[in-house]
Write a protein that binds this DNA or RNA. Structure first.
Lengths: 129, 129
DNA sequence: CCCATGCATTGACATCCGTCGATGAAACGC
DNA sequence: GCGTTTCATCGACGGATGTCAATGCATGGG
């Protein structure tokens, strides 16, 4: 390994795709180098909330009455067209952050319980670090 | 307000840019509808970690010896070119998640203390919700 | 029955983003 | 001084992304 770095530590850096069971429940990012697979999975969720509109939609849905809202309640606050809002909501649903329940003519979106908290746990630095 | 939605709740949804002091310290997303400004600021940080490579770099830096790493330590694990790694590291620095300290020929990157925890706090659902 | 409402989907377009090779600058060893 | 190493920056390219107007599909009311 022609690597003349300052400190050749030779840690097991998991460059490949190790079997490592890093699901979405208990693998703090800063604790150990994460595998490429779990990085893709996790990044997809962060990318979903990495857009101002989607972050706002998430907040609007959570703060709405009954912790749910239909598309018609959201287009005006974010000042975007209905197709655009529907698109963003679909991204959030696909990311596992929102649920969609159709009642009558309306589609109601609500937070997936614990989804954001799971992400928060992964970001948090372990106290023993 | 020609809005015949199912439940006209008329919450103060903050569509404009209210003065609201939603800094990066104490404003849970799901507690109250966030302003457009804070959404942009916050989304920028989440977008920074919304990429598999950057998420991995963050983890690699944190898990490295001394909680810091130079570019030469990171190119091999992520299997990307040096310019690409430098680019991603710059994005993370600009997002306020990494620090760069140049010592000799090497640039050492380290986690900004508490930066990830601050993001985690914003994602967490208040217990009283 | 027909029309109005709410919403998802499609297609299109401009922009952004991740990636690389090439280049240049700073620092170190000889 | 000169070559080597480390790294940032630049320019370019293909693919992804956010946005909209137009369309289609349900659902519900008259």
């Amino acid at each position: 390994m022609g690597h003349t770095g300052p400190m050749a530590t030779d840690l097991p850096l998991l460059t490949g795709s190790g079997p490592q069971d890093t699901d979405l429940c208990c693998a703090p990012i800063v604790r150990q180098a994460m595998s490429a697979d779990s990085a893709v999975t996790l990044a997809a969720k962060f990318k979903a909330i990495g857009d101002p509109t989607r972050l706002r939609l998430l907040s609007l849905v959570a703060a709405h009455d009954g912790a749910e809202a239909c598309v018609c309640d959201l287009t005006e606050p974010v000042a975007l067209s209905q197709p655009t809002v529907s698109h963003h909501l679909k991204v959030l649903v696909d990311a596992g952050l929102l649920t969609r329940s159709k009642r009558g003519t309306w589609s109601f979106y609500a937070l997936v319980p614990g989804a954001l908290d799971d992400l928060a746990d992964l970001l948090r630095t372990p106290v023993t670090a």
